[in-house]
């Protein structure tokens, strides 16, 4: 908040930003941001939507409010990511236990029991016990999935509330700010000026978007795995069978629509895909007696988080932390 000494440099940067062509603006600005060369050009999508930039007096008031907001949103993103990591790893251990119990049950009939084979009904009892275990792990897996959905929806919310709008008439004596737009003319980005040292609000949004997108994609892939693992069962194939269009828990589709993962046209979740790849979207079909290799691939896919580029995520947090002079860890 006490960024007063830096204000003059920011003001001189200001007129540069709305340069005539966006391409030249991005190239000139990327050269001036050599310290963060790995990031995308900070402000390519910037358009001067605000015909009359904020008067300097308001800018002076807007900046601290915007800075406070951005700090809160970014630290929310950091904590959501932590939540994701912990629920993803507990989900992985539940999935592993589920698979192990399932395979033990499946091979119970052929298992060599040695002296135990004389015991009455031992296979049956063991099978029943393993069945019960699977039920427990299924519900645990589902609750880890729920936690992951919650983490991602909060991330989406945080990334969408990075702007700071002026509340009330601009000429009133008491200037207030809010994260909701009350005025069509107010784009909430302070006229595109840097909120801290270099980056405008829309650059912050862009980085947040890039980050959140990874988690959204990964969530959808995990949904497929959860679905497959939940429908894996030995007996009663019909009872457990789940379809892609089924809701895994009440309210799931509302959460998925917040993450843009629910298609209103087909009325089912969008099919999973990888980052940067088009999906040809064939129907997601499940087989409830997958062989052990397939189950192993499922667990590995869970573990690998192919859609999340951890290095890039750390890089984004580090760059933003540097920009905001806070350490986001």
């Amino acid at each position: 908040m006490a960024d007063q000494p830096e204000t003059p440099t920011m003001e001189t940067l200001d007129p540069q930003t709305p340069s005539p062509s966006p391409s030249s603006s991005s190239s000139s600005s990327s050269s001036s941001f050599s310290t963060v060369s790995y990031s995308k050009p900070p402000n390519p999508s910037f358009q001067n939507q605000n015909p009359s930039p904020m008067p300097p007096s308001l800018t002076r008031l807007w900046r601290p409010a915007a800075q406070r907001n951005l700090r809160n949103r970014w630290s929310k993103l950091v904590s959501c990511r932590k939540q994701w990591v912990s629920s993803s790893s507990s989900g992985k251990s539940h999935a592993t236990s589920l698979v192990n119990a399932h395979l033990s049950q499946r091979y119970m009939s052929t298992m060599e029991l040695g002296v135990l084979s004389d015991m009455l009904n031992i296979r049956k009892k063991a099978g029943r016990k393993l069945f019960k275990q699977q039920e427990t792990f299924r519900s645990k897996l589902l609750s880890s999935y729920k936690d992951m959905v919650a983490a991602v929806t909060q991330m989406v919310n945080a990334s969408k509330s990075m702007r700071t709008f002026l509340k009330g008439p601009s000429n009133s004596a008491l200037v207030q700010f809010s994260s909701f737009s009350g005025d069509q003319n107010d784009s909430g980005d302070g006229g595109g000026i840097p909120a801290f040292a270099f980056w405008s609000i829309s650059s912050h949004e862009q980085l947040a978007d890039e980050l959140v997108q990874m988690f959204i994609m990964e969530l959808n892939l995990k949904r497929l795995l959860v679905l497959e693992l939940l429908s894996t069962s030995c007996d009663d194939p019909q009872a457990n069978e789940l379809h892609w269009s089924d809701q895994l828990y009440p309210g799931e589709f509302d959460h998925l629509s917040m993450c843009n993962l629910f298609s209103q046209e087909t009325c089912e979740p969008v099919p999973p895909k990888l980052m940067d790849l088009k999906s040809d979207a064939p129907t997601v079909r499940s087989n409830n007696q997958p062989n052990p290799e397939v189950l192993q691939v499922y667990i590995t896919t869970w573990l690998a988080e192919v859609n999340i580029d951890t290095l890039r995520v750390d890089e984004i947090f580090a760059a933003i932390g540097e920009e905001m002079h806070v350490s986001l860890t």
């Binding site: 497959e228 895909k273 990888l274 290799e293």
Partner: peptide, 22 residues
């Protein structure tokens, strides 16, 4: 080796490119 065989991907086969990515 298991990961190199697309037969082992089950339902994941509907996700284009998953084998390479994994």
């Amino acid at each position: 080796q298991v990961l190199q065989d697309s037969k082992n991907y089950g339902s994941l086969n509907c996700v284009a490119g998953v084998e390479d990515a994994l």
